[in-house]
Amino acid sequence: MSPTVNGATVVARAEAPATTASAPPRRRRMPSTRWAALAFLAPLVAYLAIFYAYPLYRNVELSLHDYTPRAFVQGNAEFLGLANYADVIASNTFGPALRNTALFTLVSIAAQYAIGLALAVFFHHHFRLSGVLRAMFLVPWLLPLIVSASTWSWMLNSENGIVNSVLEAFGIGQINWLTSPDSALWSVIVANIWLGIPFNLVILYAGLQNISGDLYEAAALDGANAWQRFWRVTFPLLRPVSAITLLLGLIYTLKVVDVIWIMTTGGPGNASITLAVWSYREAFGTGQPDFSPAAAVGNLLIVIALAAGFVYLYLQRRQERT
């Protein structure tokens, strides 16, 4: 019978005997959302490891050894350390290749961006046939590079090219566009500019679509003319899009090989050679492959591209803070 206190029945509860040893902690199960995230991340990690990390590792390994074709097959290349890099920098080709790379890259991306921006602003004002004309400007982007480079090579041919034929009609003598050291580099620059304009046009035109028309109306009410609206409204609001466009253009232009190789093969002499063309020529273009110096030149290009990427990230963070 249960005891009572002030008329209330109190039910006695038996206490469990105290245990001398505590129970082991239970393992926490990983949430299903984390497993799902890892499952979605795994293909990307595998892709980066197979197609980026491993080739980069192999390229660095090639540049640190003496890989002749025989050693490449047998796998017994001699370790040289940084000797290949020293030979590349001390080579007579390094100076012209570095100078031509800088000139080819800077002039190309500056002209591509300026012309692409002008066309994007032009097509931003909708008019009849604007869609058709935009599609026509995309033709260079859609053609295979070998076709475009071959077309430019034919157009600039010294003897039967259409450019010289037009110049001769105006009384201008023959110009050796692709065989003269003074004009070979500028010829491939013009061809590369033509190839890169559609990319800049598409990206910048898309950026213009995100700018509200109310801003232009407010600027017009304040008395701003067309140039002031562009400089005070369009250009500042396009800075993020412009930055990524220039960065992608820089990376793409640094590694251009096919256009230069088809048109001039880096010649005459080293007049139009760049670091990318030099790397390709050392590995595949002479009939006597020299893989290690080619890999060293390629790694120098990678360092330049990484430096440009870090500069972009620095400027982006600086802009976000301000």
Rank of each mutant, 00 (worst) to 15 (best):
residue 89 I to Y: 05
residue 201 L to M: 10
residue 146 I to K: 03
residue 215 L to V: 03
residue 205 Y to D: 03
residue 86 A to M: 08
residue 153 S to Y: 09
residue 240 P to C: 10
residue 233 V to Q: 10
residue 178 L to R: 00
residue 175 I to C: 01
residue 199 F to L: 14
residue 288 Q to R: 12
residue 251 I to F: 09
residue 66 D to I: 01
residue 129 L to S: 11
residue 279 S to C: 07
residue 174 Q to E: 12
residue 208 L to C: 12
residue 1 M to E: 11
residue 36 A to N: 07
residue 241 V to P: 00
residue 229 R to D: 14
residue 156 L to R: 00
residue 93 T to E: 13
residue 261 W to Q: 10
residue 17 P to M: 10
residue 217 E to R: 15
residue 201 L to S: 06
residue 214 D to N: 14
residue 105 T to S: 12
residue 161 G to E: 09
residue 109 I to S: 01
residue 259 V to R: 05
residue 220 A to H: 12
residue 159 E to I: 08
residue 41 L to N: 13
residue 63 S to Q: 06
residue 130 S to Q: 06
residue 275 L to S: 05
residue 256 V to L: 03
residue 108 S to M: 02
residue 170 F to M: 14
residue 133 L to G: 07
residue 94 F to Y: 13
residue 274 T to P: 04
residue 73 V to W: 06
residue 105 T to E: 04
residue 31 P to Y: 07
residue 321 R to N: 03
residue 145 L to A: 07
residue 209 Q to F: 06
residue 36 A to I: 15
residue 108 S to Y: 03
residue 74 Q to W: 00
residue 272 S to I: 02
residue 238 L to Q: 02
residue 262 I to S: 08
residue 258 D to F: 04
residue 82 L to C: 07
residue 272 S to D: 04
residue 26 R to H: 11
residue 258 D to R: 00
residue 189 I to L: 05
residue 29 R to P: 08
residue 40 F to Y: 13
residue 18 A to K: 13
residue 238 L to T: 05
residue 246 L to R: 04
residue 228 Q to R: 13
residue 310 F to S: 01
residue 49 A to I: 12
residue 90 A to M: 09
residue 120 A to W: 04
residue 310 F to C: 05
residue 91 S to T: 10
residue 209 Q to K: 14
residue 27 R to P: 01
residue 245 T to I: 06
residue 201 L to T: 04
residue 212 S to Q: 14
residue 173 G to E: 01
residue 70 R to W: 00
residue 245 T to G: 00
residue 50 I to R: 07
residue 319 Q to M: 12
residue 195 L to N: 04
residue 30 M to E: 11
residue 316 Q to A: 12
residue 129 L to I: 01
residue 20 T to S: 09
residue 231 W to L: 11
residue 50 I to Y: 11
residue 31 P to W: 08
residue 69 P to R: 04
residue 88 V to S: 00
residue 258 D to Y: 07
residue 147 V to S: 11
residue 27 R to A: 12
residue 162 I to V: 15
residue 220 A to F: 05
residue 178 L to F: 04
residue 58 R to D: 06
residue 14 A to D: 09
residue 229 R to T: 10
residue 85 Y to C: 01
residue 233 V to C: 09
residue 288 Q to V: 13
residue 2 S to C: 10
residue 112 Q to M: 12
residue 107 V to P: 06
residue 56 L to N: 14
residue 167 L to E: 03
residue 126 H to K: 13
residue 285 G to R: 05
residue 133 L to R: 04
residue 45 V to W: 15
residue 155 M to P: 04
residue 100 N to R: 11
residue 257 V to Q: 00
residue 249 G to Q: 02
residue 99 R to N: 11
residue 159 E to G: 11
residue 74 Q to H: 03
residue 51 F to S: 06
residue 173 G to T: 09
residue 25 P to Q: 11
residue 77 A to W: 02
residue 136 M to K: 02
residue 105 T to P: 05
residue 258 D to N: 00
